[in-house]
């Protein structure tokens, strides 16, 4: 029986069909929508102590799912969660595994060639986390030292660019995901971890001794973070855009922000206490989906 099932799966997998560019039709046919989620992108998208996906962007996505249900007239539409990583999120969206990615993905020009983004729902500042005791306060102090970052992230490219421009030489060490990279900092495998500030603060918050760490140094980049979907799918993009803009207009997004950034959150009830930045405040008034390049013009 199982073998038969597997054979059928093989046959289905091998039966060639074009990649669906119409997400709504695909979702309707399947009776299910697949959300891409992260394991440790605090507090945007991560797994709680019951290993269930939660977070600010996961909630935004759930509002989108509601809108899809309404539009398709399928109140029973199922939601599937697909864990994604920094290295596979884009391939998984383009190959059709994930319909909507609810993680912490930077919207930039290179990625826009492959995927599309919803209006920006979070703006992050790329900085570094260090151990308080190390006395490090700036990037220049990292010359010749091991610096952690997560593979597949824009931080990798930012560090490359910074090295080239300033002539510093980091010894890069790569974590598979953010928790891995933080572990490198925690276990002294790296003296700094360069990443989006919200992720750093979230990781510090869940660490054993939060007081041992701090986020310091110059901002390497300001990056718009948004939900990610397939390119060239105007119907789905319009639905996602309208939903997100509606949340901004009604003030609901601000409430969601307060709930995840300014209040105790799982897994251990800590509070990030991180007020909304100026960029995001502006965006709530005038939403857009501009890429990072628009924020970092020199």
């Amino acid at each position: 029986m199982t073998a038969k099932l597997v054979l059928l799966c093989c046959a289905a997998a091998l039966a060639a069909a074009p990649v669906a560019a119409d997400t709504l039709a695909k979702v309707k046919e399947a009776g299910a929508i697949t959300l891409g989620i992260r394991e440790s992108s605090y507090p945007l998208s991560y797994l709680d102590e019951k290993q269930q996906p939660v977070g600010y962007h996961v909630e935004v996505c759930q509002r989108v799912v509601e809108a899809v249900r309404r539009q398709l007239g399928q109140p029973g539409l199922k939601v599937q969660f697909q864990p994604v990583t920094s290295q596979n999120r884009i391939p998984l969206v383009t190959n059709g595994t994930v319909d909507l990615e609810c993680g912490s993905t930077t919207n930039n020009e290179a990625r826009l060639k492959q995927v599309a983004f919803a209006p920006t729902t979070y703006v992050t500042y790329v900085r570094m986390a260090v151990k308080r005791a190390s006395g490090i306060t700036g990037l220049a102090q990292l010359h010749g030292k091991p610096v952690a970052t997560t593979t597949g992230t824009t931080s990798v490219q930012l560090m490359r660019a910074h090295e080239k421009a300033k002539g510093v030489d980091f010894k890069e060490v790569y974590g598979k995901d953010h928790a891995d990279s933080f572990l490198m900092l925690e276990t002294d495998r790296a003296v700094a971890f360069v990443m989006d500030d919200n992720l750093l603060l979230g990781l510090i918050m869940t660490s054993k001794n939060p007081a041992d760490y701090q986020v310091v140094g110059e901002t390497l980049s300001v990056e718009p973070i948004a939900l990610m979907l397939r390119r060239d799918d105007p119907a789905f993009k319009a639905l996602v855009d309208d939903t997100v803009k509606g949340l901004m207009k009604s003030g609901e997004l601000e409430k969601l922000y307060a709930r995840w950034f300014m209040a105790p959150i799982p897994p251990r009830g800590a509070n990030m206490n991180y007020p909304m930045g100026e960029h995001l405040r502006q965006l709530l008034k005038a939403p857009n989906d501009l890429p990072a390049e628009a924020y970092n013009k020199r």
Partner: peptide, 19 residues
């Protein structure tokens, strides 16, 4: 994190979309 062939494949696919 050894930057051998599989590591490079994953990194290249993410950056280039030429999977």
């Amino acid at each position: 994190g050894v930057m051998e062939l599989t590591f490079q494949a994953r990194q290249m696919q993410e950056e280039t979309a030429r999977g």
